[in-house]
Nucleic acid binder design. Structure first.
Lengths: 244, 244
DNA sequence: GCAACGCCTTGACCATAGTCAAGCAAGGCC
DNA sequence: GGCCTTGCTTGACTATGGTCAAGGCGTTGC
């Protein structure tokens, strides 16, 4: 319904792509890169726009050039979790593509994003041409798998406060500014609902958890800005729950 | 009942390995197979024996020839979950091996098992020699990843009864005998504790869940044998929780 | 034989987080 | 301006599942 997008694919080439160094594609030769460049289509997405839906047939993979993407998964009930955030250089949908399944999660732009689509045929050609590419994807999958298994453990063993503390600590690396005294300011790109979905709870519980952090003077939340009095409090919250 | 073990590695060759067709290794050429055969060491494990621990350095990968293996993960608190079961033909520890990390879960024989160890150097050699092997692992990783993400969703959105019903439905494929009338008998290889760990609950809750299934006449549990009155009840239990 | 251990079960209790319902604030639209 | 919608918060209530403590039962070992 919008079409702010449609900057043509010729305007940004894989050769000049800023994020390529961070992607799987960095192992390609010039010739292979030409193939990739020809096969890809770039497109702009506005916040809230969906890149692909769960159960859609997987036609290829997506590569984030700029912006922020949320990878979601929902059950039949309509309950949703936010599995992970996708940043420039990240690849989306490679899992389904590689195992030949339909998409089993959905991707949605959380910020204005520029995303390349590379069709399945091109990916397959490149994979057979350049074996190193497969190993890069293998690495990626291994990392994602490890993260997913951690998440399973966390969500079954840790209480909500600890999971939230952990989330803030993870987001710190990307969005946090830490001061000398251990204080931190976070400028988050996430709504409360999305934070809730990231730790697998409902919005009401998120609200209450935030409030309990404020009551305990661990942090102050104003809009999407978070002031953490002292990072150690978050770490302590985690370790407490882990029984240390 | 023990020390059947220590059959030497020469006695069973990769060439005659019954399970090879089901493994990643089925794509190897004869010459590569010879390499694998020379590099591997086979060993027998008794129930309870640990194949590798979490945080151990990953020296290579393991391949299950026979038996049953549980892949576990625990948090600092000592709480444990059983991530998945490993069957003949399955590969263990490939994730850590491929991303160069230490093991981030542990593997333990649940039944007497025969397991081959293939050292990292051999794996790497084979991976560079035969690119298809990498793609096979990639596929494996993609499958595991999908399963792990499902598990995250389930453990945060489904109540215990539904998770247990789901577990029984999964175990049905391997251990169940289903009759004409929809009744089913399962002969499980798992203790109550392990079933509890598979759905991320404590043993007490497992006990109570079992009892509630018996009270509702969904199933009868005697030791490790389960009689399910009608499979549809399990499916219904699941769908009910998913809001259908 | 008996003691010790591991596994499972049960009871009583409680805390955590989900549900339902209502209300508020901010932004978009006519 | 008024009217929606959407996102967030709050309250009251409930249910689910965790915790703690005790006891049963079967196996193993001395």
């Amino acid at each position: 319904m919008m079409m702010e997008g449609s900057r043509s694919s010729s305007s940004n080439s894989c050769f000049t792509c800023q994020t390529r160094g961070r992607t799987e594609w960095c192992v390609l030769t010039d010739e292979e890169l030409k193939l990739l460049d020809k096969g890809k289509v770039s497109r702009d997405y506005l916040p809230g726009e969906v890149i692909f839906h769960e159960a859609d047939a997987c036609q290829g993979i997506h590569c984030i050039e700029s912006g922020l993407v949320g990878v979601r998964k929902m059950n039949a009930n309509g309950q949703e979790i936010l599995l992970r955030l996708g940043y420039p250089g990240d690849t989306l949908g490679y899992r389904s593509m590689l195992s030949g399944d339909d998409h089993n999660n959905s991707a949605e732009a959380l910020e204005p994003s520029e995303i390349c689509f590379i069709d399945a045929a091109t990916v397959r050609t490149l994979l057979t041409r350049n074996p190193t590419l497969g190993l890069r994807f293998l690495n990626h999958a291994a990392t994602d798998l490890s993260a997913a298994e951690d998440k399973v453990l966390q969500s079954t063993t840790l209480p909500v406060r600890a999971r939230f503390a952990h989330l803030l600590l993870v987001l710190k690396d990307r969005y946090g500014v830490v001061g000398e005294d251990g204080a931190m300011v976070l400028e988050l790109p996430l709504s409360r609902q999305d934070m809730a979905a990231m730790i697998g709870i409902r919005p009401e519980s998120m609200s209450r958890t935030i409030r309990s952090f404020e009551d305990d003077e661990i942090a102050r939340f104003t809009g999407r800005r978070v002031h953490v009095r002292n990072i150690d409090d978050l770490i302590e919250e985690l370790e407490l729950a882990e029984g240390l």
